[in-house]
Design a protein around this nucleic acid. Structure first.
Lengths: 338, 338
DNA sequence: CTGAAAGCGCTTACAG
DNA sequence: CTGAAAGCGCTTACAG
């Protein structure tokens, strides 16, 4: 009743395991194995429901058909959505994905990376956590395929898929300016991650072009309550703001909570644009304009790049760096100034 | 520059790989290996940054330290949150988790299960998809640890962690009745999954006890638009409803969209209770009362049960079946009838 | 056309 | 106290 091995197949048929292996791996033709024998093997494989042991295969070939996926927190909607799409594509291609959350803990992230290495994953997909730059550089040196997404590190030469953060925020800011807003605030995180820097820069460029002065709040994120407290102070100080752009999903969530607490009305008191779209925005009154990331396209590109690397391992090709456009979904919160 | 193996360590020290293996696995004492030799091995291991090859170890021991996790869709907030907690606990214990989404496709689910089997995962955690009952029974017969959560199948004898669906909906229904509501509707999915059946039954019992007649809508879920269309028809037909309970997260989401489209006001026109809490509910006007599942407790219990099975494999112990209480978070949507 | 054998990197029963 | 050797289940270069 235990799982049959290649040996069982071979001995039952009185042939060598070599032949069985060739047939199973579709090399019967190439290796000139007779059709009748091929059929016998295939029939027995089907009868016994033989499944090759992936561990043995991996040990021998050095390939595991497993990819490592490393992000801050897999339960964040953006990462969960990307994970889902990646998993979908990968499983169609015979790959499985090991998901890991670093929980913004560098030490933990390094450990997780080590575990993925121990498991001999064939490639890595990461939203690179801060503090992992050196580890990743080492990884890339070993010729392991690594594809980054969401953000990149100029210093780390590798493939990545990002969206055009600067351009999308630039367009969103311009949209607000075009609709008559002048005192536009920008609420972001205190971080040096590329995607946040680029978003800020898109805002700054648009404001400068229009000759408007900027107002930036960098939230030092500890937890929701503290973040709301920081924003409350900000909005109290900057009373004259007539619009605000929130630079990320949960920043926006906390911003909307802050408005609720302070009795600030969307659009009526302040126009709002959110980076990242999520269900809540559609339910606000009025609904909130959002910069929408192309989730499918991100996942598609990541997998495409990774697969092409996997298929030509060793060949030092140049880096593929993709920058995808985001889409501004205009809703009631950013309509013309009243 | 390639990874050092146990052989490299042994040959460098002119000792056998047996000794190295014992030292690495902390059996130096037990095997009476001299302290000085133990230290030499450990030092070299540190110097070379030797990491045992997990594949070889797994092939030999039959244990992979990997767990399989199978749900409908990893990007659903409930599953994503559970996944995150499980991953957190598991990685502290040296286990990794392979996550898979079946996307409500039975054939796909069977394939995924097969892949997990091929990978020799040590145990399984699943929100059992419909149509997988027989496969899982086979799995359990092979003595592989399997822990179900979210729902169970009476027919499948195994460990599971669920919440008290019936009691929690019973209490929620009673809460509405106590607050003066009489025409209470119940919107659920057309499914035979245990958790949905139990939720429905909690509603029915509470209504019967109060001598009230029921109104149940079973949505045949295809997509959001269709679901909203079905609910629109339902709420048009059942005009006299003064309260409604939505039996799951995305059903509630679509219900709220339907209200928005129809101009139905929460609490003012109809009291609302949602099964599962999510951020949107807090932002509704008034905020929506929710039955909150204890996510941490679910994940904790699942892992506890699974680990105890892993540690005494083979011993046919009885099944551990845990039923956790849910918590009714009362908000403005279900306050006393106006 | 087919097979014997080495080897991937470990663990462990057995021997001394 | 320590080691030689078998074996987990595969793949593949080599031989005939």
């Amino acid at each position: 009743m235990k799982k049959p091995s290649i040996k069982d197949i071979a001995s039952r048929l009185n042939i060598s395991i070599t032949t069985v292996s060739f047939v199973i791996n579709g090399k019967a033709k190439e290796k000139n194995i007779s059709e009748s024998l091929t059929k016998k093997v295939l029939d027995l494989v089907a009868e016994l429901n033989y499944q090759p042991n992936a561990l043995a295969k991996s040990l021998r070939t050095g390939k595991t058909q497993i990819l490592g996926f490393l992000v801050d927190d897999i339960s964040e909607p953006f990462f969960a959505a990307i994970a889902r799409h990646l998993d979908e594509i990968a499983s169609d291609l015979g790959y499985k994905i090991l998901f890991s959350s670093t929980r913004n803990n560098t030490q933990k992230a390094i450990e997780l990376l080590q575990i993925l290495k121990d498991r001999h994953v064939d490639g890595y997909i990461m939203a690179l956590p801060e503090g992992l730059e050196e580890e990743v550089k080492k990884l890339i040196k070993t010729e392991t395929p690594v594809v980054l997404f969401d953000r990149y590190v100029p210093d780390v030469k590798t493939d990545y898929v990002i969206i055009d953060n600067q351009e999308s925020v630039y367009q969103a800011t311009k949209h607000l300016i075009d609709n008559g807003y002048k005192k536009i605030g920008f609420v972001t995180l205190e971080t040096s991650q590329s995607q946040m820097i680029d978003r800020l820069s898109g805002y700054q460029v648009a404001m400068a072009e229009a000759g408007l002065s900027t107002s930036v709040k960098e939230v030092d994120y500890k937890n929701g309550a503290d973040s709301i407290a920081q924003m409350t102070t900000y909005f109290k100080t900057e009373r004259k703001l007539d619009a605000v752009i929130f630079a990320a999903n949960y920043i926006c969530m906390d911003g909307l909570r802050t408005f609720k607490k302070m009795g600030i009305k969307i659009h009526q008191d302040i126009a709002v644009v959110s980076f990242d779209d999520f269900e809540l925005l559609e339910f606000c009154d009025p609904p909130v304009t959002a910069i929408v990331q192309p989730l499918n396209a991100i996942a598609d590109n990541v997998m495409k790049i990774l697969l092409s690397r996997l298929n030509k391992a060793g060949q030092a090709t140049g880096n593929t760096q993709v920058k995808l456009p985001a889409h501004l979904k205009i809703r009631g919160s950013s309509l013309k100034k009243i």
